[in-house]
């Protein structure tokens, strides 16, 4: 199968800290790949390295057959990568509608995608004029995901979407992610193994800045020992 993204042995420094020390990720087109690992393992840094927000010093990032490491972040993103950062980082001073409009890459992106987005997240339509600050945690997370859906992205990087959300809301979040994954490829960072295992087909485990194991999710789900060893959860 064709890989839409290949991360090849990247090393990333933040200041003088050697944060990523060899991460490999292969992402088959149309799949959901989960990045797993304990807190501070380097999952977020991996996503940011793909986008060039923390540019890797060594190794390669290949998107659609083109080497993108070293390019500027906005150039990489413009090739069709959407980013949903952790901690629900929406723009608080912007209204819900502005949060969506700002993500336009071509004029009319928002109008074109509106219906699709509001079918996925019906709540947002009701809140359209409100400032970002007045949304609940779940609504902010939906907005952060919706924002990445406005332009034509082929790959979505979603960082811990279930973090700090109530179980019912996680449920509807998962439905939405399943739905949007029909249209694009997804890399999902997820601490909650239950959520990750239900959504993703493939996984990569990151430990202390290195990718240490990868494969098919259903194989990992059966391997209780590995789950416990790498993730500390059963």
């Amino acid at each position: 199968m064709e890989n839409i993204l290949e991360v090849q042995n990247i090393h990333t420094f933040i200041g003088q800290y050697h944060i990523l020390q060899g991460v490999n990720v292969r992402v088959p087109k149309g799949s959901i790949v989960a990045l797993l690992g304990r807190n501070g393992a380097g999952k977020t840094t991996t996503l940011k390295s793909i986008l060039g927000l923390t540019p890797p010093r060594e190794g390669k990032v290949i998107f659609n057959g083109q080497e993108v490491n070293g390019l500027r972040s906005f150039d990489i993103a413009s090739m069709g990568i959407g980013f949903v950062p952790e901690h629900r980082a929406i723009f608080r001073d912007l209204s819900v509608e502005e949060n969506l409009k700002i993500a336009e890459r071509k004029k009319g992106d928002y109008l074109r995608k509106k219906d699709f987005i509001f079918t996925l997240f019906p709540d947002l339509q009701r809140l359209i004029a409100l400032p970002g600050t007045s949304l609940s945690g779940g609504q902010q997370q939906m907005l952060a995901i919706a924002r990445a859906l406005v332009p034509d992205n082929q790959l979505l990087l979603i960082d811990e979407p279930s973090e700090g959300l109530a179980p019912v809301i996680i449920e509807s979040m998962m439905t939405a992610i399943r739905e949007l994954a029909k249209e694009s490829t997804v890399i999902l960072v997820e601490q909650n193994f239950l959520v990750a295992s239900q959504l993703a087909e493939y996984y990569v485990i990151i430990e202390e800045g290195r990718s240490v194991q990868d494969g098919k999710m259903k194989d990992l789900a059966a391997d209780k020992a590995a789950i416990h060893r790498f993730l500390g959860a059963a």
Partner: peptide
């Protein structure tokens, strides 16, 4: 204006604005 929107968003988090594909520089 769109420029104003980008400025207001960038005041809070310019990295995220760049990650949207906008030339923040």
């Amino acid at each position: 204006t769109r420029l104003g929107m980008i400025i207001r968003a960038g005041v809070q988090d310019s990295q995220m604005v760049e990650a949207l594909g906008i030339n923040v520089r």
